[in-house]
């Protein structure tokens, strides 16, 4: 019985740990986006008016957010039990 509980505990940790880590990371990224939104708009305006040094910023943001938030949402539905038909 105790091994079963231990197994269940390991399984729960396996499912919830990546979900929590990715959730916190994703939330942190969106908080940063909110805090620096004015700067991000001014980067775009500067790029538009000819200063090209920061033009890659949106591309880097898109890649990082996609990977982190993508991993989080995948764990999210898994935990809720919404899964593809096997």
């Amino acid at each position: 019985m105790s091994t079963e509980i231990a197994d269940l505990d390991v399984k729960m940790k396996k499912n919830y740990l990546p979900f929590l880590i990715m959730g916190i990371l994703s939330l942190s990224l969106y908080t940063l986006l909110y805090l620096f939104s004015t700067d991000i708009v001014s980067f775009a305006q500067n790029t538009n008016s000819g200063q090209k040094s920061l033009f890659l910023i949106p591309i880097v943001i898109a890649m990082v957010f996609s990977l982190v938030h993508g991993a989080f949402t995948s764990h999210f539905w898994d935990i809720l039990g919404v899964k593809a038909k096997s």
Binding site: S37, A44, Q45, T47, S49, F55, I57, I59, F65, H69
Partner: peptide
């Protein structure tokens, strides 16, 4: 488009969320 500063990454990331 980013070279011309036309990407509003705030919109992109909210939609992505």
């Amino acid at each position: 488009y980013a070279w011309d500063g036309l990407v509003d990454i705030r919109l992109s990331m909210i939609i992505l969320a």
